[in-house]
């Protein structure tokens, strides 16, 4: 987790990008979701991925983490070609990433603490049970849940708490890469802002690289170093929000300059001037 602070995350040219997607094609029947999609994620950045509904944001994430076999194209994650290797060979890479699914995807028969313990047990059986319990408790606290939540079952948690518990599980292995699928969807503004702060703090403390799918403009303005826009079956632009606006693409204009985009920008400016 050697993260060189001097390397600006906005740097255009990134050394050894942890995720490289090239020429990705995903086809369901006759319908192509992605057609020749290219994307690079730099080390130590939070990359926001936006796009209208049905533009294949989740499919892109599922392809990168190997849940969806693409029709064509190559995906390299942490120097390993995901698209060629089979499941067993991916183990080495899989323990270096954490995934937060939209609904949290917690195992419903286990408590929150046990949920966090699962990846530790699976990948590192040589850790003593005591240390494993301590790590699990620590991760739960780190993700912003109260201590009592450790003993609760997912059905006893609210939507926001489920997401935090999912985040705790995603962080269990101290991953280098974190995938978040709409982490703030369905959270109240206070909870969403707290979650954003949490994500940024985690990135800064742990030197994470974050791949973040979101519709939340506040999240994009607040924490994302760069934003990738998915449209027309491809990534049409990647960059900081001002850079994106310079492209003058109508969809991007509408997305960021709509009433919601403007108010998100205004609130960000207020926060920074304060």
């Amino acid at each position: 987790m050697a993260f060189d602070e001097s390397e600006a995350p906005h740097e255009r040219f990134c050394l050894e990008p942890p995720i490289v997607v090239s020429g990705l094609v995903n086809r369901f029947g006759d319908f192509a979701v992605h057609d020749g999609l290219n994307l690079e994620v730099c080390r130590g950045e939070i990359l926001g991925v936006v796009g209208g509904s049905g533009t294949g944001k989740s499919v892109l994430m599922r392809s990168i983490i190997g849940l969806q076999q693409p029709t064509a194209g190559n995906i390299d994650v942490l120097g390993r070609r995901i698209t060629d290797t089979d499941l067993d060979q991916r183990v080495g890479v899989r323990r270096r990433w954490g995934v937060l699914f939209q609904g949290g995807a917690l195992f419903s028969t286990l408590t929150v603490g046990e949920n966090v313990e699962v990846p530790l047990k699976e990948f590192y059986p040589n850790i003593s049970p005591r240390l494993r319990r301590e790590i699990a408790r620590y991760k739960v606290l780190l993700s912003g849940l109260p201590e009592e939540a450790v003993l609760k079952y997912p059905s006893e948690l609210s939507g926001g708490m489920k997401k935090r518990a999912g985040l705790a599980r995603a962080l269990a292995l101290d991953p280098e890469l974190l995938f978040l699928d709409e982490p703030t969807a369905g959270l109240d503004p206070i909870g969403a802002a707290a979650f954003d702060r949490q994500t940024r703090d985690l990135k800064e403390t742990l030197g994470l690289t974050v791949f973040l799918i979101t519709h939340d403009l506040d999240t994009l303005y607040e924490i994302c170093d760069r934003v990738a826009v998915l449209a027309d079956k491809q990534v049409i632009a990647v960059g900081t929000i001002p850079e994106l606006l310079e492209t003058g693409h109508p969809w991007i204009e509408e997305y960021f300059n709509g009433p919601r985009g403007r108010s998100a920008l205004a609130s960000q400016e207020r926060a920074h001037s304060a």
């Binding site: 046990e114 408790r137 620590y138 739960v140 606290l141 403390t205």
Partner: peptide, 12 residues
Amino acid sequence: AVEVAGGDGELC
């Protein structure tokens, strides 16, 4: 960052 840590308690 780990100062908040929760210690060794049962998980269920």
